[in-house]
Structure formats: C-alpha cells, structure tokens
C-alpha cells in the first residue's frame, strides 16, 4: 500500500522544458503565479491559458496527467467556485430561489476563481513534472545563494532537502517491513475506529524512528569520511548554465505574460 506514494512527480524527458536551467523554470513559474494574480479580465486569462497549456504541450506532458494533479484540490476549487457563484451580491440577477441568487457578477467571479486555481496548479505542476528533485534543490540553492551573505544556512537547507528525498524510498520500504513484522505477530491496522487505528500505529512509529536516527548517525559518519564539511570549498559535478534554450523561454514568457498584463491594463 505504501508503494503507491510518489513524490516529486518527476517525469523524465528531453523536451525544451526539461532541458532549461531549473533556475529559469523556478523564476518562470513565479512569474506565471504573479501574472495570474495581477490579471482578472477574460482576454488576459485567455492569453495566459494559451501560454500555460502551450508549455504543457511543449513538455509533452499528457493533459490527463496534469488534470489528475487537480484532484486533491477539487474540493477546494468546487467549494470556492460555488460560494462565489451564489454569494456575490449584484444587481444583474439571473436566478433566484429564496435567499440565494446567482448574479452576473457572481458568474464572472466564480469563473475567474476556478480558472485562476486551475491555471495555478497546472503552472506549478509544470515545474515539478519536468524537473528532477535534485535539479530543483540545486536550482533553489543557487537562486537563494545571495542570502548566504546574511548567514542564512541555504546550503544546509538544500542538503537536508536532497537527503530527505534520498531517504524517502528507504524509509517507506522500512515502514512496509515493520508493518509486515507487526502483522505477523497479530497486529491489526485496518479495523476499529480512528483512535484505535492511530494507536495501532505507535508500534510502527517507534522502531521507525529508532532506525531513522541510527541511519542518520551512520550517514553523518559516512559523509564525514567523504570529506563533507559544509559549503566551504565545494564544487559541483553539474554546473548550472543559462543557455539559448533559457533565452527562448524567457522571451516567450515576456511575450505572453507581458501581453496578458498589457491586455489587463488596457482593456
């Protein structure tokens, strides 16, 4: 049952979006998010939608996969959509039943909110689908590296993130093993009420934590043996470089996102 957990949701490929520098991608997604919040008119949103779904097409991601990413947030999308639809006050009443009414303004606002959330998630998933976790942490580390001057532990945070990613599959496997061991001795994780089930998890968590600490200790020793001493004098195998692909993406972003904002302001 734990095998189904996928993290990072990375889909390897060799498209333009896969090739560009992770820093470009992070900045791109941030720009998309800003544009989505700045814009609110239909024409601007049309441009943004064309741009975002265009990028998804360029990355050769299946639309179904991207839409599946919406699933966990479906409740929130529907909830905010419905609330806006029924509770926006306005003069232009389209339909009324008792104290609830649908106004033209409500329809517009609901459509905007739903479009904004869908495009936000699609845009953000573009980053996680096309960037491997290690590239993502690398990109974040480089982007945030100016903050090192303020003595913020940026390198340490990035290292922790990548180690956490490295150990997720190991710990998932271990949890599976512990659960099987407890089941073999008659533990029951699947019945009873919530409290009962939560209590049944304690015999899993305790050995899991003990072993995680032991692993952390051994890992720290192994890292020291391989001369790890933090950020000082460290080089990297993979150098991040902005190239022609990045320039193309940046130009497209300026064109579309700038275009959308201009439309928003002018129209």
């Amino acid at each position: 049952m734990l095998k189904d957990i996928t993290l990072g949701q990375y889909f390897p490929g060799n498209t333009l979006m896969h090739r560009i520098d992770p820093r470009t991608k992070i900045l791109l997604v941030m720009a998309i998010i800003v544009a989505l919040f700045v814009c609110s008119s239909a024409p601007a949103y049309l441009v943004l939608a064309v741009y975002i779904f265009g990028l998804i097409a360029v990355s050769k991601l299946s639309l179904r996969m991207v839409l599946r990413g919406l699933k966990p947030l479906l409740v929130i999308i529907v909830f905010t959509g419905v609330l806006n639809l029924f509770l926006t006050p306005g003069d232009d009443i389209l339909w009324r039943a008792g104290f609830v009414s649908i106004t033209m303004a409500g329809v517009q606002k609901a459509a905007l909110i739903v479009a904004r959330l869908v495009l936000l998630i699609a845009g953000a998933s573009l980053l996680t689908y096309t960037t491997s976790p290690i590239q993502l942490t690398d990109g974040l580390e480089r982007l945030l590296s100016p903050l090192k001057k303020l003595h913020l532990p940026i390198h340490e945070l990035a290292m922790m993130m990548s180690l956490a990613l490295r150990f997720i599959p190991t710990l998932v496997e271990e949890t599976d093993k512990i659960m099987s061991a407890q089941r073999a001795r008659g533990a029951d994780f699947d019945s009873g009420n919530l409290l009962h089930r939560a209590k049944a998890l304690i015999p899993i968590l305790v050995p899991l934590f003990v072993s995680a600490f032991r692993r952390a200790d051994e890992l720290a020793t192994a890292m020291e043996c391989r001369l790890y001493r933090g950020d000082t004098g460290r080089t990297r195998l993979r150098q991040l470089k902005f190239g022609r692909d990045d320039a193309v993406c940046a130009a497209a972003a300026v064109l579309f996102l700038g275009g959308a904002i201009v439309l928003q302001v002018l129209v």
């Binding site: 490295r166 051994e218 890992l219």
Partner: peptide
C-alpha cells in the same frame, strides 16, 4: 543504504 547521499 546509509552511506549513499544522492538520488542519482
């Protein structure tokens, strides 16, 4: 498992 640090 406890001495491999990277995901690649």
């Amino acid at each position: 498992d406890n001495q491999i640090v990277a995901t690649v």
